[in-house]
Amino acid sequence: MLKFKSIEEAVVAGVKSIATNCIKSGTVKKLIYTGTVVASSPLKDDGSGYKDFIDETCCTPLHLPLTALHKEYADSKTLAEKELLMRYGKDENESGRLKVVSLDIGLVGGDALLSYMSASVAVLISQVKDNEALHQSLKFVEDICGKIPLVHVDDVCEAHIFCAENPSINGKILLANSYVSSVEITNYYRQNYPEFKLKEKYLEGPNREIKWASTKLIDEGFVFKHDLRMILDDSIKYARRIGDLSM
């Protein structure tokens, strides 16, 4: 059994193994890696704050003062994507046999087929559940990305298919169609689901003027079918369906 010194080393090794075996197969023409926007932070490398925008040119600095769990997650995802794109993502790379797409996905909401609560939706409705631990994970995404990039699970599925079927798509792509603050999410729940009586503390948060500047997927012709309202409403619907919300 292979032994690794860290989570980061294990994740990078896993990505390298997948890409290497795709090339060895001789039949795989495109590798679509499901990444995360946590690897695409608009934070400046010198620690002086945020850029004015977030897009595919952004990459999360590795020296951020995060909790151990969040740091392992952010660093491992960032390093894995760097390895994948630098080693294998150069115009069909050295072998000439493999295209690489890294889909950096936002926080996923919406109604899922699962019979249990998905981790991402649990984070997204943390204010409704008054779950402070999960809300810290929501704030982690907000602090890394400036605001919270959101995407509906159905659009995530469609985007994977779209990237697989479109031969011109390669490289890094951010996948989200809403970019909002945690306070904006709280306000939506308070206005549309007053029965949950969200606490005032969730109305406290940063108001950062950072723009979502990623248009790469849309420029290729992809159409998002679910807006912010649908993402949040379907998340509540899902939680109610599986009995995670009593009202």
Rank of each mutant, 00 (worst) to 15 (best):
D234H: 12
K197Q: 15
M230V: 12
E195R: 11
I125S: 05
I218W: 00
A13M: 08
M1I: 15
F4V: 10
I32W: 02
V151W: 04
A74V: 14
P149Q: 01
L2N: 14
N131F: 06
K16S: 05
D219K: 14
S178V: 07
L64I: 05
A80T: 03
A68T: 11
N166V: 02
M230A: 14
L84F: 02
K30R: 13
L66D: 10
G171A: 06
H70M: 06
L84V: 10
G146V: 08
A119N: 04
D45P: 11
A10L: 14
D233H: 08
A133K: 08
S95K: 06
R208Q: 03
A213H: 09
I125M: 09
F222S: 06
I169K: 01
D104A: 14
T215N: 13
D45T: 13
N207A: 12
V100E: 07
I18Q: 00
L107W: 00
L245E: 00
E195P: 11
A122T: 10
C59R: 13
T36P: 12
E132H: 11
C163S: 15
K30P: 13
K172F: 04
H70Q: 14
T67H: 05
L174I: 10
L228I: 15
E83C: 15
A213F: 06
V11P: 09
K211T: 11
N177Q: 09
E195I: 13
M117C: 08
K24E: 13
L150D: 04
S48I: 08
D155G: 12
S102F: 09
I185H: 01
V128M: 12
Q191S: 15
L113Q: 05
P42H: 05
